[in-house]
Amino acid sequence: MSVTLVGKHEKDSRANRDAYVSAMLEMMETDDKICHVDCDLMNCIATKKLLKAHPDRTFNAGIAEANAVGLSAGLASTGMNVFVHSFGIFASRRVFDQAFLSVGYSEWPVHIVGSDPGVSAAFNGGTHMPFEDCGLYMNVPNFVIVDPCDYVQLYSLTKKLAYCGSPSYMRMVRKGIVKVYDDGSDFEIGKGYQIREGGDVTLIASGILVDEALKAGEALEAKGISARIIDLPTWKPLDEEIILKAAEETGAIVTCENHQVATGLGSAIANLLAQKKPTPMEFIGVQNRFGQVGPADFLFDEYNLRAKDICGAVDKVLERKAK
């Protein structure tokens, strides 16, 4: 395995967005086709650094997201390798038709980055809290969808997306979050990572729920329950092999996501398992509710995204497994 788990539940000293900016700066140095398009949010994700270093390939499209995505497709048609950013709500809901037709249907490998996913929108509130962003992109046949869990994974996957040849949507938490992996860890698109061994149940998590799953794994161990944990940064295409193996070997699955369950990771996994390996499942995530304003801590509690909620779901799924 080319990844090294830290898993101490300690916050990374670096802002998460700097992982994206670092990866982009490095790529822009060596590849003159890489460019960044932003929508008047450069100050939010520190992409002014890109503008300063590469003014010829960093574009501010203003508060006009539909055009930003459309022109990104046009740039890609001339051979440019384009990343385009806005807040997750705009980078999904507001531009969905442009992303679908100008990018996806047209098969231009444009990379759309949506910041402040789910509860990480915190003080911007319900208007700015995407619980449905990935769900929208799940409908576009050729999109790759990733929800990185920390700085190191975001850095690595940004570089992988640039050369994956497909259109993509990536979620990006802006601020400093828990460091899950050690620096230098290298991730692949479409691959899940088993970060804890276990035989009784499997927790499959992505994004900022990975650390909650790790905490849940420790709490379960104290109760004598052996939980396997899989970090699944890529929602599409799914790593079917690691999921089916976990279903076969542990016989119970709990999915954990910072997103609506109905259109998200849990549903995608349920869809796979219903066809290939029916398995008792429980779902941690947002259950058909809108977002709201408040600190992230409050929102984690409010939407039942905590390790204790995961442990509760494990109790329920193990009851069904026993039957």
Binding site: L71, G74, S77, M80, Q98, S102, S106
Partner: peptide, 23 residues
């Protein structure tokens, strides 16, 4: 470039013109 959802083609054309300038 692919069109059909009105308004999208002009954005795509703008991007293509920009891409020509950049390169």
């Amino acid at each position: 470039l692919t069109t059909g959802s009105l308004g999208q083609g002009i954005s795509e054309a703008v991007g293509a013109a920009l891409g020509k300038k950049v390169q």
